[in-house]
Design a protein around this nucleic acid. Structure first.
Lengths: 256, 256
DNA sequence: GCGGCCTGCTGGTCAGACCAGCTCACTGAC
DNA sequence: GTCAGTGAGCTGGTCTGACCAGCAGGCCGC
């Protein structure tokens, strides 16, 4: 599975052992690992090395060890948290440009909208309505707060879509786009116009999802992302974005 | 940024500091961290704690420290590797069912095909052709080898798509689906038929990509995934899958 | 001028120590 | 018999100090 570069460090043995035990079901969430001292004895290694292993496992989100807990390190339930973190690290340091991120967002948001239109519950609609109110209020609160409200809108939809992968990838990518945007484009003073446009867009998406019109919700996502960002990317990337709009039967803004 | 649960452990200070330094550009790939002993002095903590910090940073893919390297731990270039690993952990332990994975694959594969149709280079086509040959040969080599060849086909396309997020997410999800399939469905002895069908499908996708017909390549991906897996999921999920097929103008297999 | 040795450093590992505080079993009161 | 109070025994967090093997670069002898 992993490459041939065997890691000779002793703590790795513990890491591998625990990882396998969790993957194999011998360790279930809520179970406890032996204490550090006992692990050291079992693997015949020093406690310092055990602790390095535990730090790695902890960072991987597999366990958590709390100070002075006599029951030993806790095996955690699987969570998207660590994946989220490492994706965020990658997207923020990997030299991603706007085009690459937005193209992915067109895919992720459209799918989230499509799925959400079918799965949304009344509670989801309530949450979306509450968010719309927050968003309107945020127009005067500044673009940072507005950006967060905007993020929340999409995250509610992603959650409603009922697919944790769509949700995970979408959330991370949206945050990355937002970060990039706030650092680059937002020099214009037509910021206010943009915010109003966003609110209008959200209202349309909300209506489509409430109507259970998935294809429309999907199309709106792609058309809007195109309208927002097409002018900020190169020709090649714009053509790709246009392809993505056309793929779902969307229309491009007429601007020859 | 992170929640309010401040981690009081001393090694966390080092982790945070290095993470920030890398994110802020003060540390670039190829740079060296101070030695463990020196880090300990600077942060006024013991070397054991420094080592825990280094293990975490190493696991996050930010640095690498090699034994007896007098130049100190190396700052690594951003890589999708850690993200891949943690996503794989999540998808394999998170209790994902076939439906959730396949629905995401429909999104990811279709997008990869669409993008690849536009971006593919002659070299990509050569690689795909080579893979087709490998695949044909694998029909007699058993379904494990066949599965790997199938994976490779999609990975070549994902790479050709020129979007690292599409590539990352698609690759991981495909592996998860394959693992799930090989553990569940593959009891039937019509395995051979399935493999032939796969080869046929790949040929069609290859032609579409060679023709630069992105919409067709995208549609083929969704139709085929539907045809393969629709019967193995519940009614609700099948309807979602049908929505995904229709979204790109695809047709459902007539089977009333 | 140049090749080989040697010192000083590195990371990897260990043993042993101290601290603060959570749990649980035991105790005693009701 | 039940329950609140308490203390002992662990736990994880941290530090100190030690030893090892091996890489780099400076030094020395040729």
């Amino acid at each position: 599975m992993t490459g041939g570069d065997a890691d000779p460090r002793v703590f790795q043995r513990v890491v591998d052992h625990v990882e396998r035990a969790i993957a194999g079901g011998e360790l279930a969430p809520g179970d406890r690992l032996p204490s550090e001292r006992e692990l050291g004895e079992r693997f015949a290694i020093a406690r310092t090395s055990v602790r390095e292993a535990l730090r790695v496992l902890e960072h991987a989100g597999l366990i958590r060890s709390r100070p002075r807990d006599p029951r030993g390190p806790l095996v955690l339930a699987p969570s998207p948290g660590p994946a989220r973190r490492s994706i965020a690290t990658f997207t923020s340091t990997g030299g991603f440009g706007l085009a690459e991120l937005v193209q992915f967002r067109m895919v992720a948001d459209a799918s989230a909208n499509l799925l959400a239109a079918r799965r949304r519950t009344p509670a989801d609609l309530v949450a979306l309505e509450r968010n719309t109110a927050r968003m309107r209020a945020a127009i005067d609160a500044g673009y940072v707060e507005f950006g967060l409200a905007d993020l929340e809108f999409h995250e509610i939809i992603a959650r409603a879509a009922g697919n944790r992968l769509v949700q995970l990838y979408g959330d991370v990518t949206r945050e990355a786009v937002l970060g990039l945007i706030q650092r680059t484009i937002l020099d214009a003073d037509d910021r206010h116009t943009l915010m109003l446009r966003s609110v209008r867009h959200h209202r349309a998406v909300f209506a489509a999802i409430a109507d259970r019109d998935g294809p429309l919700a999907s199309r709106l996502a792609r058309e809007t992302l195109y309208a927002y960002y097409a002018e900020h990317v190169g020709d090649d990337d714009r053509e790709i974005m246009a392809d993505l709009v056309r793929e779902v039967g969307g229309r491009l803004p007429d601007r020859p």
